[in-house]
Computed example of a mutant assay.
Amino acid sequence: MDKEGGYHLHTLDTLARYAGHGNFADFGRAVSSLVGSEPAALGVPTDIPELLAMERLSYPERLLLGYFLGRVSRPSDPRGIASPLALRLAAHPAGQEFFVESFVDLAHLNGAYGEVLREYLRHKQTAEAKLFGNCALFLGEFLAEDEAAWRNRLPELLALPVPAEVHAFPRGRRAFTELVVAWHDAPHQALPAATLARLRFEAATAPRALAPAPALPAFYNHFPAGHHFFVAEALFLTGQFGPLLEWLEFTQLEFPQLATLEQNVFNELLRAFRAVAELNTGHSRPGSVGMHSLFQIESHSWLLDYYQVHIWLVELHLADKTDAAEITRLQNKVEEFSALHSMSFFNRVARQIVAGS
Results as ranks from 00 to 15, higher is better:
96 Q>E: 01
103 F>K: 02
112 A>W: 01
196 L>D: 02
47 D>P: 00
14 T>V: 08
313 L>C: 10
349 V>F: 08
247 W>T: 02
332 N>H: 14
155 P>N: 03
62 R>A: 03
10 H>Y: 12
156 E>K: 15
223 F>Q: 13
192 P>K: 02
341 H>W: 08
97 E>A: 09
29 R>W: 02
262 E>Q: 15
116 V>D: 03
315 E>L: 09
62 R>W: 02
298 E>D: 13
357 S>I: 11
355 A>Y: 07
153 R>A: 08
345 F>T: 06
3 K>F: 15
280 N>R: 15
277 A>L: 11
230 F>N: 06
262 E>H: 14
184 H>T: 08
181 V>W: 01
174 R>F: 12
218 A>K: 13
271 R>Y: 12
35 V>Q: 10
138 F>L: 15
356 G>L: 00
88 R>F: 05
79 R>K: 13
172 G>S: 00
219 F>N: 11
224 P>W: 04
171 R>T: 10
329 R>G: 06
275 A>S: 05
122 R>L: 15
163 P>L: 04
32 S>T: 11
332 N>V: 10
101 E>V: 13
176 F>E: 14
111 G>D: 12
54 M>G: 12
92 H>E: 14
333 K>H: 08
128 E>F: 02
115 E>F: 03
155 P>R: 00
98 F>Y: 14
54 M>T: 10
28 G>A: 01
150 W>I: 10
74 R>A: 15
70 G>E: 00
99 F>G: 00
343 M>T: 04
263 Q>M: 11
70 G>Q: 06
166 V>D: 09
328 T>Y: 11
325 A>W: 08
88 R>H: 02
217 P>C: 06
129 A>K: 07
154 L>R: 05
81 I>T: 12
268 E>T: 00
138 F>Q: 11
87 L>N: 01
19 A>I: 03
263 Q>G: 09
293 S>Q: 14
276 V>H: 03
5 G>F: 03
334 V>Y: 02
66 G>T: 08
248 L>F: 08
159 A>C: 04
109 L>G: 01
65 L>Y: 00
186 A>M: 04
27 F>Q: 03
30 A>G: 02
329 R>N: 00
333 K>Y: 07
217 P>S: 04
288 S>E: 15
314 V>R: 02
320 D>P: 01
268 E>I: 00
311 I>N: 09
230 F>W: 06
11 T>P: 05
18 Y>E: 01
229 F>H: 10
8 H>C: 13
233 E>W: 06
227 H>M: 09
7 Y>I: 10
78 P>I: 06
253 L>M: 11
106 L>T: 05
93 P>D: 02
5 G>E: 06
109 L>Q: 01
331 Q>H: 11
10 H>C: 05
84 P>C: 10
137 L>K: 05
320 D>F: 01
152 N>E: 15
216 L>G: 07
18 Y>C: 01
106 L>M: 13
11 T>C: 09
14 T>H: 09
44 V>R: 14
225 A>F: 03
303 L>H: 06
40 A>R: 14
101 E>A: 12
326 E>D: 03
228 H>Y: 15
197 A>K: 12
270 L>Q: 13
32 S>F: 10
298 E>R: 13
105 D>G: 06
292 H>V: 12
206 A>H: 15
217 P>I: 01
10 H>M: 12
156 E>P: 08
355 A>S: 07
70 G>P: 02
121 L>Q: 08
200 R>I: 07
